[in-house]
Design a protein around this nucleic acid. Structure first.
Length: 642
RNA sequence: GCCAGAGUAGCUCAGAUGGUAGAGCAGCUGAUUUGUAAUCAGCUGGUCGGGGGUUCGAUUCCCUUCUCUGGCUCCA
């Protein structure tokens, strides 16, 4: 007998070789039906795999992350089985579960796959699932595994095998399909009741663009039809808050083929938001001891040779324009210009920290396939600043920047984000990263220490640093689930020396400052894209392009509405009148849909009493109020940015 | 940049196996003067993304190009 410890601490005894399904069944049949995998001593196992020793057991269902990923991983195998039957001779690479489903990469030998094929594959998969084929696990000696895939002629799996040792190789078979796989899997294919193959994509083998491109098929599956329908509904909902749709609908921005890809034209409504954000940034930065500067959009080649942009960042820059034998580049970052401002005057330790801020316009030649609405563009306006400080001041300054982030996030109600400590990748020193291994390690440790001291939760990722130093990135997700860096806080140990920046320290000696690059509000483009989705277009009052709309019941009250409008405008409130000869219901409907925060209904009653009837978007009628008190209240709401 | 898909009126979408296109909403005009999420009527609006080819004839078929979209690679 073996002792099984359940999550509630209960210890039960079972015959040796019992599996998780048996154990679940001993608790209840209902539970057994829901179990799709199990965590055995912290490791996710097949629910059907025999347990030989005492163990801590946690049964996993669809509602556990481990359960879902097992379910999707198994569906990837089911898809592979279907693909193999429809396209014989196909070679497979890997087929893992992902955040919302699964994919499998394969080499179809030059054959093209169409949307129609996906529908066929779905039918085939449904058919195979209904057979309830068991997933059978088998430990295989390496030699036998190699033999199997040699026979099959699958060089991709042979490549995978190369990194595996004898004794750690397992095969899984379901129906007529056998795959090299670590597992685990669901008990049988019958668990998969609903599925959808969502798209076809190219994916470079091993993620390297120099390698051959394989065909990747994405899909998602569920234990019931109901869950699939809910998922599809959720996708529909997400589409409604897509910033590209809202941006168009609300007159925020547009793009034009003649202007160029990735170049945003901000319309009046979008520009209002930009100006409000800049106002916030200026207030915040002034309070934090920043000074504002303004710099040009271009500079001579030499500046970028000095900064290191040309060797390390050239691919992302627009090609130069040449005038009188001198090459000029559009700036991709503001830092070199700011460094020149630092260098323009002799600096003392007494001037430090020197904080130079600019909403700088940068141009980056992003690859055409990367452009994405407002989130990834080629002309961007960065909430940029550079802080020049001594090593001793660094921790304090870096911490202050982090605190500024959190202050902003509170204002915008940003709760779902991840702080990422982005480090260099030693393999890319001298290529993607400035070749200063010790300085990398030193500054990375400095940043890590600040994060730890401030108890900031973060994840560490290698190979995401800037070319001049490590950074903290704040990751957010778009409505359709794509991940982006919203804000960034970077250390730069390289450019100070490259630009020969110096200040005179207390010992009357020249010293090179450390530089912090920071952009808590990221860029206008990405930030407003994010805000559109975050608020689903329903901006808080202070950001709303139009804050108040006056809705006269009929033309008779237009005159009174005009006087109210004047009062609002005098109070710097963005307001307008709906003077169409429509019924009030229509005016309300249109204004609600336009997401204007406040509506003021004006008719006989209001005109006589010198009042307005206030209606809040999404909330409905709030009753009558004096014009003056209404203005006072919303001025407060605007001022507090609540 | 690579793989795949899409581009018809301002928006959402129909449509023709090749004979130059239609609806709703929006817009405009008129009627209506309205009390908290759609008043009625009429009208305007499109070289069916651009260029080239095949054809008596192309928005439809072919080629090419641009843009957008889903991924890959890359990144604020």
């Amino acid at each position: 007998m073996i002792k099984i410890t359940l999550p509630d601490g209960a210890v039960r005894e079972y015959p040796e070789g019992s599996n998780s399904l048996d154990i679940a069944r001993s608790i209840s049949e209902g539970l057994a039906r829901k179990v799709i995998a199990a965590s055995v001593n912290g490791e996710v196992w097949d629910a059907t795999r025999p347990i030989q020793n005492d163990a801590e057991l946690r049964l996993l269902t669809w509602n556990d992350t481990g359960g879902k990923s097992t379910f999707w991983h198994s569906t990837a195998h089911l898809m592979a089985e279907a693909v193999e039957s429809v396209f014989p001779g196909v070679k497979f690479w890997v087929g893992p579960p992902v955040e919302n489903g699964f994919y499998y990469d394969m080499d179809l030998g030059g054959r093209q796959i169409t949307e129609e094929d996906l529908r066929k594959l779905e039918v085939k998969m449904t058919e195979l699932a209904a057979r309830q084929s068991r997933f059978i696990r088998k430990e295989v000696p390496k030699a036998e595994a190699i033999h199997f895939f040699r026979e099959k002629g699958d060089e991709y799996k042979l490549d995978l095998l190369e990194q595996l040792k004898d004794g750690e190789i397992t095969f899984y078979t379901q129906g007529g399909f056998t795959d090299l796989c670590r597992g685990p899997h669901i008990p049988d294919t019958g668990y998969i009741k609903a599925l959808k193959l969502t798209n076809i994509a190219g994916a470079y083998w091993k993620g390297d663009e120099k390698n051959k491109q394989l065909t990747r098929i994405y899909g998602v599956s569920f234990p019931s039809k109901k869950e699939l329908d809910e998922y599809l509904l959720m996708l529909e909902e997400a589409k409604k808050r897509d910033h590209r749709k809202l941006g168009k609908e609300m007159g925020i921005y547009t793009m034009d083929d003649d202007v160029g890809p990735g170049l945003i034209l901000w319309m009046p409504n979008g520009t209002i938001i930009i100006e409000e954000l800049e106002k916030l940034a200026k207030e915040t930065e002034q309070a934090a001891g920043y000074q504002r500067v303004v710099t040009p959009h271009i500079a001579k080649e030499n500046l970028y040779l000095t900064s290191g942009h040309l060797p390390y960042y050239q691919d992302s820059m627009y090609p130069p324009m040449e005038l009188e034998g001198v090459k000029y580049y559009l700036k991709a970052m503001n830092c070199p210009h700011h460094h020149k401002i630092f260098a323009a005057e002799p600096r003392s330790y007494k001037d430090l920290p020197l904080r130079l801020a600019e909403y700088g316009t940068c141009y980056r030649y992003e690859q055409s396939g990367e452009l994405f609405g407002l989130m990834r563009v080629r002309c961007l306006h960065m909430n940029d600043a550079h802080i020049y400080c001594s090593k001793e001041e660094f921790a304090q300054e870096f911490r202050a920047v982090n605190e500024m982030y959190l202050k902003y996030f509170k204002i915008f109600g940003i709760e779902k984000y991840v702080m990422r400590l982005s480090l260099h990748d030693p393999a890319n020193l001298g290529k993607k990263y400035i070749n200063e291994p010790e300085l990398w390690l030193e500054t990375e440790a400095m940043v890590r220490k600040v994060l730890q001291e401030t108890n900031t939760p973060f994840v560490e990722v290698s190979g995401e640093g800037a070319f001049y130093g490590p950074k903290i990135d704040v990751q957010i997700w778009s409505a359709i689930g794509r991940e982006f860096t919203l804000a960034t806080n970077q250390v730069d140990f390289a450019q100070g020396r490259r630009f020969k920046l110096e200040f005179t320290n207390r010992d009357n000696r020249p010293e090179t400052p450390l530089i912090i690059h920071r952009a808590p509000l990221g860029t206008h483009e990405r930030f407003i894209g994010f805000l559109l989705e975050h608020y689903a277009g329903k901006f808080p009052l202070w950001l709303a392009p139009q804050q108040v709309k006056l809705l006269p019941i009929s033309d008779k009250y237009l005159g009174y509405a005009q006087t109210v409008l004047e009062s609002l405008k005098n109070a710097d409130i963005r307001a307008g009148i709906d003077d169409r000869s429509e019924k009030i219901g229509k005016k309300i409907r249109d204004t609600e849909l336009a997401r204007v925060p406040y509506m003021l209904v004006i008719g006989e009653k209001e005109m006589t009493a010198g009042k307005v009837s206030v209606r809040r978007q999404g909330r409905g009628d709030l009753g009558e109020q004096d014009v003056e008190s209404f203005i006072r209240e919303i001025k407060t709401e605007i001022k507090l940015r609540s």
